[in-house]
Design a protein around this nucleic acid. Sequence first.
DNA 1: TTTAAAAATGGAAGCGCTTTCAGTCAATTT
DNA 2: AAATTGACTGAAAGCGCTTCCATTTTTAAA
Lengths: 330, 330
Amino acid sequence: MRKTSIKDVAKKADVSIAAVSQILNNKGQRFSDHTIEKVLQARDDLGYVPNSAARNLKGAHNRLIGIIVPSFRMPFFADIIQSMQDNAPTDVNLVFLGSTDDNLQNAIYSLVERGAQALIFGKPIPNRAEVNEFLKKRHIPYLVLDQNADINAQDMVQTNEFTGGSLVASHLLSLGHRKIALILPNKLTDNMRQRRAGFLDTLSTANLSPTTIITATLSKHGGLATVHQLIQSQSTAAFVLNDEMAIGVLRGLAYQNIKVPDDISIVGYDDTDYAEFMIPTLTTVMQPVLDIGKAALNMILRRLDHPNLPFQTAFFDVKLVVRESTGLVK
Amino acid sequence: MRKTSIKDVAKKADVSIAAVSQILNNKGQRFSDHTIEKVLQARDDLGYVPNSAARNLKGAHNRLIGIIVPSFRMPFFADIIQSMQDNAPTDVNLVFLGSTDDNLQNAIYSLVERGAQALIFGKPIPNRAEVNEFLKKRHIPYLVLDQNADINAQDMVQTNEFTGGSLVASHLLSLGHRKIALILPNKLTDNMRQRRAGFLDTLSTANLSPTTIITATLSKHGGLATVHQLIQSQSTAAFVLNDEMAIGVLRGLAYQNIKVPDDISIVGYDDTDYAEFMIPTLTTVMQPVLDIGKAALNMILRRLDHPNLPFQTAFFDVKLVVRESTGLVK
DNA sequence: TTTAAAAATGGAAGCGCTTTCAGTCAATTT
DNA sequence: AAATTGACTGAAAGCGCTTCCATTTTTAAA
């Protein structure tokens, strides 16, 4: 029940092992059509698939990139993953791992062990220094997505979160809103902090600050749970730090028979697939997710080819997408 | 710039390679505390991580399961993936691959090459016979999720799709609906076919058939695009074959100012996260996705341990979840 | 003290593959 | 007839690791 090896193919085709290897890899010496045919035939008959472990043991690795995300279920990351997969050159292998904070170490270890030559972090790294040291020691370059980090320690892909938050504030202000609530997930990542900062900053230029700041878990249910407090605050608008929660808020408000945007305007962030299908459609901030995924992959690939180039940070602009969920204050 | 290998650790700790291997793997012979300490220290100093390729070359593989899904963006599969990841024993590695029909062969090949010892297909296999032969030849067991297949060729995990469709029909009939539309994705998978069959079957017991059958791409946009036709059909209810499309339908109807469920009842299928957050909340059929993912993983693991057991099919029941989007016919 | 048994460790083979190299043999070319 | 070329083989090294077996060292029993 042993897997068929190159030896079996060689025997069956009645040629040398070297011949099989070179013919199947299409490099090395030249062989006659006849021999090539024999080898190919034998391979197919036996259903031979080279063992990549053995192959990688020798020099010519194919590139393996490990990607660590917080969850496969978050639309943002689902998009990132899909876009990376779609854009990966055929000789590049991608391995995705969902990881919580506690098993981040494990995730990294497992990826490195499997031969990942580079890592992409789609989530905050709690003990950054340690991780950095570990990876540096192994000469494994990595890239962080949408997180603050030492600009000189690794490549980064960032979106202009500060601007994003600011755009939201401007938009609401321009609609005449003065009583604006802020709804946050209870665990903020760096990029969310910037989002918040941009928002608050612009609010303050109008001498305003949020009527209330409500926190809840980052989920649709979390958003829904904030509704009671939101209503009590008598705000005329709310900035919900991400679409996922905003969807919950929308739902909760509908349960209370509060009309959006007539009674209150709602703004989300991310412009996930669902935003334009909500009722009302959701005003939100769009990040070019597909481009981000693609850029991250390209940057890390480039890093692999040129380990000594200075670290880069790619910046992506965000865009306010105005839809039905925001309107003039009454 | 070579990665540090076991040899380096051995040299640094001033012990044999064999000792390092056995100590780090905590098996084989016994070693003195002193030696163990030296080795561990050397490993940490060097940041050594064993190369799993080399390791797998020898007997003791850790188990690698390849999982092929159509897309990472579909909530159904995002859930499946997440649940598998969450339930995987630590010595089992999961590799997910998104794959279209054209590159299914590649996906399979790449997974096998990487040493996958079993495969799970979350999508239809176009050329089943060929794939089956290929995998059988390599003694790689596989499992199909929610697809029809020869019950004696591999393990399967199925949900009671026929019942699911039937439940929907009964529900609508019981609400008094007689003019019911059916909205399908234009590419049906086996399970969707069964879903449809159950639905039609139960309709026919009331001597009914759909007022209209509309097809569109499987997406929210696809669903939205069917609205015009749906309205023309003057149906009082519609069964949309999955939530994704149903969300689009809901949206489209709102644009036309058609009230759900007052003017028309809508039923989806899948009970994705979003169903209960729609406005109105969506009546749909729930599949125990998390259980399904878990079951699939367990079955294939069991198969690995017992290659000769007869093939199994796990059946999961579905449940109609009645929400706001369906109501009595006017 | 001798001796046998137990404990600690090193040596080396081998996993499947790629790659190199010297060399064989036949078919061409000069 | 000799030299050249093309097609190929066989052997061997080496990738990093595990594992079996032999050997050395220590400890305890005789």
